[in-house]
Design a protein around this nucleic acid. Sequence first.
DNA 1: TAGATTGTTAATCGATTAACAATC
DNA 2: TAGATTGTTAATCGATTAACAATC
Lengths: 218, 218
Amino acid sequence: MKINVKTVQRFSLYRRLLLEFQPEEDRERIFSYELASLAGNTAAQVRRDFMVLGYTGCTSKGYETHRLVESIAAVLDSEEGQKVAIVGTGHLGKAVIDFFRDRRPKLTIVMGFDVKPDRVDCTIHGCPVFHADRIEELVREEEISLGILTLPVEASQAAAEALVRGGVRGIANFAPVRLHLPPDIHVEELDMTTYLETVAYFARVREAPSDDADDLLL
Amino acid sequence: MKINVKTVQRFSLYRRLLLEFQPEEDRERIFSYELASLAGNTAAQVRRDFMVLGYTGCTSKGYETHRLVESIAAVLDSEEGQKVAIVGTGHLGKAVIDFFRDRRPKLTIVMGFDVKPDRVDCTIHGCPVFHADRIEELVREEEISLGILTLPVEASQAAAEALVRGGVRGIANFAPVRLHLPPDIHVEELDMTTYLETVAYFARVREAPSDDADDLLL
DNA sequence: TAGATTGTTAATCGATTAACAATC
DNA sequence: TAGATTGTTAATCGATTAACAATC
């Protein structure tokens, strides 16, 4: 039962879809093929994923949505929640803070950091912003376990190192640069250039509507 | 020679790394294992990817970086360039516009759209912003082929449809919602929740430094 | 029961890795 | 030549899909 990045991403998607799921009648169950069609994959895969979760459905009655959501939460969420710090409170940082407000109770962005004097010592949507000099100190004090980098390329490595010194275990990096960090720190990179280039390529190549369903999951 | 999403993402990453690559002496070549180590994969895979590009290196001399960049450009870029429109000019939209400024000459965000009166009829980093009512008209007029959605969930579907009516062929969607569009439109979704949840999960699970190198490519 | 969906195994598919002759 | 890297094939690995008995 290996849970890899792709599996986690599917679980996250399933949860989102289940929370949005509005059945016609007031039934609170969902069939594997229904969720599969929402998620864009096959019913067999949905069933296999649920087996991994350890949640068994009822034959010919499907799965109870609220129990599925609980099962997914048991895997994805930590019981006591995880605190997140964000470094870089420009437009992107503000957008991320706003995006996560009240969205996932177990993942809270508790503080931001920046170097620009006019961005420090204020709050963004209730999230206090401190000077980047204090990253290590405050991350350790608050027992923050995750970091988000929404900084220019040149500042990202130093910020990442400060986060790790403070005790952060995982980093989401929006800057298009590979970070050099200890191997036990999980880094997930998101390069918007790659993202848009992928769209651009397939938008061009797929020009002919002779479409052969390639994998376009997240 | 099937080029799928993952392959395109690797090409994009290679290009970024090659453009940053600063060899010690003034040699302008790179070995497969050097690029592999930068990109975090194996030398064999790098060589295989280059074969797909149709660029052959020199035995025991490696690959010329500038010719590699050209070969990648021949696949990823369209000769005449592709125009992009962005819908939603809040913090995220502004960040994306700023991010792409001068980054990829063949991908230009030529205009933005919004509905809020105070965001319309101004420019952001030289990019003019119009009212969302005019999406279809202006996208068709300017022959824009790509769209970026940086909008709240509830507004995204309508905006996507307007873009498609205007002639857009591919959409990068930042809102956590599945769009219902004709199958010949390529949609790439980016859900920040999924992204952060993935980091959170592996940061937790990997707690013990008994690390078994899982796949963490973009 | 008949119909439908589930859990689970077997078959398929594709991507990655390993290996090695060819080349400079 | 010896050393190193390339192009390319074969072997491995893992994930996805197909299939079907079991169950309600």
